[in-house]
Amino acid sequence: MNETLAKYLPELAVAPVFELIVANRVHLKIVNERQTRHGDYRKGHSGKHEITVNGSLNKYRFLITLIHEIAHLVAFEKYGRLIKPHGNEWKYTFQQLMIPYIRPEFFPNHLLPLLARHFRNPSASSDTDTTLSLALKQFDAPNDRYYIFEIPYGSVFRIKNGKVFKKIAVRTKRFECIEISSGRTYLFNPNAEVEVLSS
């Protein structure tokens, strides 16, 4: 397991993360990229704790995602299954599990203040924190995707499910875009990743 983890995590995070996995009896599955989420946790019918994480994530995002999912397991075990998945109990648990990793042994120095700020009140996805998401993106393998806030107005783009849109305006913090096939207007978070077709 340590050899496998070493492919996906920062080097010095492998041993402590392995201890967390063993202590919480996690069955970890690393999967091909899914379109909708970086990872998930569920308690299987057998009572086994199953966590899946996308293998395509860079090592820093992989670490955050794995701790995020372990926090679900720990929060449900400690506070019961009726808590909100991303409620206060989970936030507190995620903070406590993540704090030991917000150090230069695990993350580049320029990410540490962004992580410290994010984990004062962690959200359901680090992707909704535009500054942190953009900083983490620099460690991704090169691809043809852009954040929607980076592309010019009038650009035509495709999202992961294949739908095509045109960026037309900004509304408060989100971007207004028209779906080409239906003419309906949708709002996108600034750091939604899209494939630009024309600009």
Rank of each mutant, 00 (worst) to 15 (best):
N54W: 04
N2D: 12
P10T: 00
T131H: 14
D127T: 10
G154A: 12
E105H: 03
S182N: 05
I83R: 07
N88V: 08
S199H: 14
F76E: 14
M98R: 00
A75N: 06
F76V: 15
V14R: 00
N54Q: 10
C177A: 02
I64A: 06
N161Y: 07
E19D: 09
S155M: 12
E69V: 14
F157L: 06
E195L: 11
E50H: 09
T36I: 03
E150W: 03
L9I: 01
H86W: 05
S46L: 11
I159E: 07
N189S: 11
R158L: 00
A116S: 11
I67R: 03
F119R: 02
K48T: 11
P104N: 09
L5E: 02
R184Y: 05
I67G: 07
L12W: 00
A124L: 07
Y186Q: 08
R34P: 04
T4D: 05
L73R: 15
V194E: 09
I51W: 10
M1E: 03
R145P: 04
P100F: 06
L73Y: 15
Y153F: 14
P152V: 14
L115A: 04
R81S: 09
E105V: 03
Q138V: 11
L82S: 13
G183W: 03
A141E: 10
A169Y: 03
L111R: 02
F18M: 03
V31W: 05
N189D: 15
G154C: 13
I64G: 04
S182K: 05
E69I: 14
V156P: 07
S56Q: 02
V26T: 06
R120E: 13
I67D: 02
F76I: 15
V164N: 04
L134R: 09
F107H: 05
N58W: 00
I70F: 13
E176V: 15
I21R: 11
F18Q: 02
S56R: 06
Y153Q: 08
V14Y: 00
E195F: 10
L63R: 01
L9Q: 01
E150Q: 09
